[in-house]
Design a protein around this nucleic acid. Structure first.
Lengths: 110, 110
DNA sequence: TTGACTCGTAAGCATTGCCTTACGTATATT
DNA sequence: AATATACGTAAGGCAATGCTTACGAGTCAA
């Protein structure tokens, strides 16, 4: 079973805490159980659970139950609002993405 | 005189509040005084000042005094930590872009 | 110099955030 | 059936956040 949340998806709030960003980072490679994640942090396991709940509410992770474990999986697409917001600022510093944009625009013209 | 802050630069925390993101957005075009910014928000002017202070502490804006005004200027380069963090997730974007490209390619074939 | 304007800061207050420990529930193991 | 494991949730403490109103300092204009 896969559970997603129906709460207010405050993406920016969710990634504002360093621990939660690290948790997302951990999930880049692979799904992980709560204990696997909690092992990387100083805080108590319930605290980790609460952080994961916030990530779940933001839709940044999904939860799937395997026996008595719950494995969390990254939903990177949910970071799109952050990326999209940043694109407003691209022209100030970015040559990379400008080049990419031009590249894609050129591709579309083909 | 240009003032920058010497406090802990919590970029992610600074952009976690919608009002502060909107303030940054307003500064994309041009520098603005506090009143110009406050005019765009429901909250009191001191509240706006406090938000600007947080942006200043994060280094996301600078402040320069012109007569009795203080004009705030965007420092977009300070968003680099956000952009850099997002790059860890780039390969997921690429995957999406590839899907998009495939989707578009399919449309073109129709 | 008097008064208006721009703005930051202080103080107070309600709400939220983040942590802890204690406990409950579901699943697996013996 | 009894116990261990994995995990969420409740409750509570305490700091941080986010707002308000009141006030004060600096600047401009009459």
């Amino acid at each position: 079973m896969v559970t997603t949340s129906h709460h207010a998806p405050d993406i920016f709030g969710a990634i504002s805490h360093p621990a939660r960003r690290r948790m997302l980072d951990l999930l880049i490679d692979t799904d992980r159980s709560v204990n696997m994640i909690a092992g990387q942090f100083e805080m108590s396991r319930p605290a980790v659970s609460q952080h994961l709940r916030i990530l779940l509410d933001a839709g940044l992770v999904t939860e799937q139950r395997h026996g008595r474990e719950r494995r969390y999986r990254l939903v990177a697409a949910r970071l799109a609002p952050v990326r999209d917001w940043l694109t407003h600022y691209e022209r100030f510093w970015d040559h990379h993405l400008m080049q990419l944009q031009q590249h894609l625009a050129k591709d579309n013209r083909k």
